[in-house]
Each structure stands twice: as C-alpha cells, then as structure tokens.
Design a protein around this nucleic acid. Structure first.
Lengths: 214, 214
DNA sequence: ATAAAACCTGACCAATTGGTCAACTTATAT
DNA sequence: ATATAAGTTGACCAATTGGTCAGGTTTTAT
C-alpha cells in the first residue's frame, strides 16, 4: 500500500509538477509575475501550455507554488540559535548560509526580492506572521548579546538588515557585478565575498573572527 | 530670443512631460516594466492615454526617459573624491548621500533595482560604459587607501558592493521593514540606520568615525 | 492678423495572452 | 479484464493593451 493511494496525483504528475516549478522559477525570476508568459514556462518545461494549466489551475496559483517552494529552503542554523550560543560563530555561520543560498539559488533570491520590492502582496497571509515571529525571536537573542556586552551594535534590527542586504546583493545584483568584473563570479570569489562580509559584520560588532572563517 | 525657439516643445509640453515622468516613475516602481499599463500612468498624471503617447512615442521610450532622469540624480561628492581626501570623511559622506537618496527617492531606487535584477537590458548602451568607468576610478582611489594602509579591507570592489547593498536595502525592502516594525520608518529612524551603516563600514575598515557622523 | 507649430483626444485596431473545453490516451487499482 | 482516475492536447475565446490616425483646438512667432 503506497502513499499514492490517498494522493490525487500519480508519479507522473509529481514529476511534471516539479519540472514545471523549476521552469517557472526561472521565468518568474527573469521577467517578474506580470512579465512571465505561461507559454514560456511551458516551452522551458517542454510541455504544452494546457498541461501547465492542468497541474496549476492558474498563473497566480503557479506563482504561489513557486514562492512556497522557495520559502521552504529559506532556512539556516541561525533559526535555532539561542542566547547561550557564541555570537561570532552564529553570525559567521548565518552569513555563510545566506551567501551559499545566493550562490546556488540566485533565481529564488531574485523572486523573493521582486516580491518584496512590489510590496509583498502575495506573501501576505501565509508568510507574514511566520516571518514576524521569526524576526521577534532572532531580535531577542541578538538584543541579549548586546545587553550583555557580548557584541557591540546599535540595534538588533539594523544588524540583521545589514546582513541580509549584503548577502542578498550578490544574488540580486549579479548582473551588475558580472558586468563590472567582466565575468561571472566563481565559487572562489564567492567565498572571498563571504569572508569580506563576515569580516565587516563581526568587526562592526567588535567580535573576533573564528579561525575557520578567516 | 528664448531657447524655446530651437526647442521643439513649448512650455506646456515641458510641464506635461514632467507630470508624466513622475507618474511613470511611480507606476514602473510598483509594477515593473511589463506590469505597468500606459493607462495607469495616464490616470495618475490625469491625462488621456493618447496624450502620454503623444509626448513619449512608446512605452519603452517612456521607460527609458524615466531611467535617464533617475541616473541624473545618481550623484554624490564621492564621485569627485581623490586619494588625497580623508577616507573616513569620504565614505561616511557617501553612505549619507546614498541613504538620503533611499529616503527621498525610494521609487527611483526600486526602478534601478528592478532593472538590474532583470539583467539590466535597458541600461546597456547608455550607462554601461559610464558606470564601468566610474567604478574603475573609485576602485583606484580606494585601492590606494588600502595600499597605503589608511584603511583595512580585503577588496575595494567588495567594500563598494557592501555599501551599496546596505543603503539600497532601505529603499528596496521598505515594505518588509515596514511590516516587521509595524510602521513606516521616519526620518529619525533613517538617520539611526544611516549611523549604523557608517559605524559598520568604518569599523570594518578600521577607521575612526568622524565626530559629525556619530 | 495669421500661418505654422504644438497640443489634444475619441474612435479604432491588431496582437497578445490567460484560461476553457471537449475529446482523447495512458496508467492504475481491484 | 475493465472501470475509473489521471494525464494530454488542439481548437478556441474573451479581455486586455500598446499603439495608430484623423480631425480638432490652442499657442506662439512674426
């Protein structure tokens, strides 16, 4: 007795859905919601347009599915850090995780950025509260470190914003960086950039940089 | 003898063009190029759609005009800084200028970000070389400071990227910040955020923070 | 005064595009 | 074996939208 029994979709459906989601992520990242054509998604997935609409009832539905899939990957060990952890270790690891995501899933990062720039109309409802709760917990941990004098920074909020900004930048603005440097950043350069952010943030907090992140 | 003689457009045209450009900046920032409807721009400018197309031949033309207008404001005293200037002063001022721009022209910042995220297809040609030349000059100045031991940072490029990222963030992600803080940032908070970035970058470069930016 | 240029706009069109539908084939459970 | 569900797809449609055009009014230079 397989799980498929209770599930409406068979194995073909599951495979095709993933194919379509990947194609859609690519197209939405490149053209935004309005700019993306279902036909283009279908072409990239090598399926007829009608087939795309068979699995995802509408364009909006498809977009929401893409968003949801992205948010499931939006994790880091930082999510579970407590005030008893070492700030330098935790922050350096968080920056590393975020930069890794910018490197391996730049399109997911861009979709997220586009969504926020547009005022996050589609994240409302299934992400808003979750995100606010996450933020509250993380701010508490950081604020504790600040209060205890373990790190020096004016505000836990601004510290997090600055970390996000720097890491997100390498995904969102990769076109600009590629142009300015004459070629795409490779993994080695990404690691240099990661170190530069770790150095910046940790020095900014008056923290020593752990050996493994130097 | 006025300048208007040689100019194709009269004073009415100049005024209406500006009205349309402002409306277009708002719409493009909110919906992107594809998502923006000429009709919406016209409504916002309180003019008939045909009138918009009378002044700007096409949607693309209108968009390019908006972009060009934005780039004209993209200036800072940093542009003219030389290696003989004081790094702390110059960097603090640059951050202040960029944050001021994020505060007073967030929509312009967002259009720029959207353009870059989409691979900057429209900036090619009339901005690409100009921007690369600017970057080259600025990197030279910063690299000189690094070589002379005046500032400590691994790479002039990454330093600039990190500054941009932090400042741009407050314009592009204002929806997220507004949501997380429960209200829009006011000028006082913007100044706190600016100080936090100055503190971060200057400490990251092992620089003392000038009195006026504390 | 008057001609030319600039400005204005309602009516219209061709192309695009998200989505529906009905007829069909393939897979799967019993 | 066979009925039922899942998957497939070409034909088609209604709505949207960027853009044209022709005929008008207003502004401006002389």
């Amino acid at each position: 007795m397989t799980d498929n029994k209770t599930n409406k979709e068979g194995r073909i459906g599951a495979a095709n859905k993933q194919l379509i989601l990947n194609a859609a992520e690519h197209e939405f990242a490149k053209h935004g919601f309005k700019g993306t054509r279902i036909q283009q998604v279908a072409d990239r997935a090598q399926l007829p347009k009608t087939n795309v609409l068979y699995y995802f009832k509408s364009k909006e539905n498809l977009y929401l599915a893409v968003l949801q899939q992205i948010l499931e990957l939006w994790n880091s060990v930082f999510d579970e850090a407590t005030k008893d952890d070492d700030p330098a270790e935790v922050l350096a690891r968080y920056i590393t995780d975020k930069m890794e995501f910018s490197l391996v899933r730049p399109e997911a990062s861009r979709i997220f950025a586009l969504e926020i720039i547009n005022g996050a109309p589609n994240l409302y409802g299934f992400y808003k509260e979750q995100h606010a709760a996450w933020m509250k917990g993380r701010v508490e941990v950081i604020q504790h470190w600040i209060d205890q004098g373990q790190i020096q920074f004016s505000s836990a909020h601004y510290l997090l914003y600055n970390i996000w900004a720097c890491c997100q930048h390498y995904a969102d603005f990769s076109a600009q960086i590629t142009h300015l440097q004459g070629k795409e950043m490779d993994r080695a350069e990404f690691e240099d950039a990661t170190k530069s952010i770790i150095n910046l943030i940790l020095k900014g907090c008056s923290l020593d940089i752990p050996e493994q992140y130097r």
